[in-house]
Amino acid sequence: MSRTEIRITGFGGQGVVLAGYIIGRACAIEAGRHATLIQSFGPEARGSACSATLAVCDTEVLYPYIQRPDIFVVMSGEGYERYRAELKDDGVLIYEKDLVHPTPGAPDKAPLRLREGPAGPRAYGIPSTRIAESLGRAMVQNIVMVGFFTAVTQLVSRAQMRAAVQASVPPGTEELNLKAFDAGCAFFDTTYGEAAQSPALPASG
């Protein structure tokens, strides 16, 4: 059974949990797979480091928590420091370029193989906050990130994720959020190029 583990982290207010919810919903409902979302609770969900995890599987998710994520989505420096070590050696790092500064091969941590360029990068950065601001609302930063995530990972199709965005955001904000989603996808296309091959998702048992 193929299983993909994802951690999404950021600070409270960035919409970490909603991002996780949309990805989970796209997998479980739009793509017909199984996806279990676990979110962090308590004061941290309302500020400081916030985190959500997803286990996505073609069959029933038996173990609900993640052990070593295949995909690590980071929207804050604190979240990066806190969870960077658990990312799989061949995992994919997706990060907010202006807020997170990955340190390749830091001692005593699992080294991140940050190979740039079309040969198959494992780390993908996006200035998602700036893009969201350019759309008029910094709040949609998480949806920009979801778009970028979709383009990078191809975990589900862009249409499936787009449907999940539409179904999950507050009524009346769909248009802005879909615009944010598309902007995230577009950033991937222009920055990492048509030629850039997206990595096949690493799978683990």
Binding site: A28, L37, Q39
Partner: peptide
Amino acid sequence: ECVGHMTEK
């Protein structure tokens, strides 16, 4: 708590 706070279809 795990089932209560876990989101699934």
